[in-house]
Design a protein around this nucleic acid. Structure first.
Lengths: 141, 141
DNA sequence: AGAATCCTTGGAGTCACTACAGGGTCAAGC
DNA sequence: GCTTGACCCTGTAGTGACTCCAAGGATTCT
């Protein structure tokens, strides 16, 4: 299978596949006489594994760790749990701060209703007030 | 005020302040005889404004647009509204995908309960199954 | 005087790609 | 045989918003 076919089969961009090879996530495939990469079914599965992990927003370094577990099935799975837990914690922390952000932006957006000049804009006023250390609607609590 | 004092006054890293100057967000300050940057109160306020926007996760390019409105109070504020709306939309889109992510990771985490080998690990099993195109707990729906 | 702290510049590293530039290879059609 | 177009190769640079470091000069404290 050439790189274009692998790309179509997995939906992963050709450049991204080459990037994974350089980043040592995908083993370098055999080359045909003309220098083209020739992939096997094993490569396809490994790539699908990587993309599935990435769909879960797992960093590439953690994906690499997970791949070593795929390759050594006898090892203890404790670190796998830890990796997923860490990822869950990251996602939850980000989620909480994004919720706060949404509230803050909504409060800020509420400061400006109709069309008028920047000088009269409640949003800008609020952002400038915050810069003076004064209270702002978005960071009141 | 020297850069270290500005840094302490605002809680912004010295390197970040220099970065803002290079990125044209903060105007280049005067220099004292020894070449040290000398900041004014106006710089401090501008920096506080930038950081407040960044706390709302507004991209630096958008912050730069906002700063031009601070400098020209007579202009129409329509674009300000648009900027905040765009930011709110970005945050909400990210929020939705992060919620989905949390659900997926929780389902995946539920596959592994006790300590055992990687070969028996439900998490790894699920990730590999997904790589084979089979159903996985995390992307069932 | 020496040490610690501060300041300067410039460049590289982070993450996970993405986008070229400048070439080589191959199959189909004329 | 030649052109066209799709594919492939390598290597490098860019993205955003910093962060870190090296190598040196200035200032301040003891």
């Amino acid at each position: 299978m050439r790189i274009g076919e692998l790309s179509k089969a997995t939906g992963v961009d050709v450049e991204t596949i080459r990037y994974y090879e350089k980043a040592q996530l995908l083993s370098a495939p055999a080359r045909s006489d003309n220098g083209y990469r020739t992939y096997t079914q094993a490569h396809l599965e490994r790539l699908a594994f990587i993309r599935h992990c990435r769909a879960l927003d797992i960093p590439l370094a953690a994906v690499q760790r997970l791949l070593t577990f795929v390759d050594s099935p006898q090892s203890d799975c404790g670190e796998i749990d830890q990796l997923i837990d860490a990822q869950l914690a990251r996602v939850r922390a980000r989620l909480a701060s994004m919720h706060a952000l949404e509230r803050q932006l909504m409060a800020l957006r509420g400061q400006c209703t109709g069309p008028h000049s920047a000088a009269e804009c409640g949003i800008l006023h609020d952002l400038v007030a915050a810069a003076h250390g004064e209270a702002c609607v978005c960071h009141q609590n």
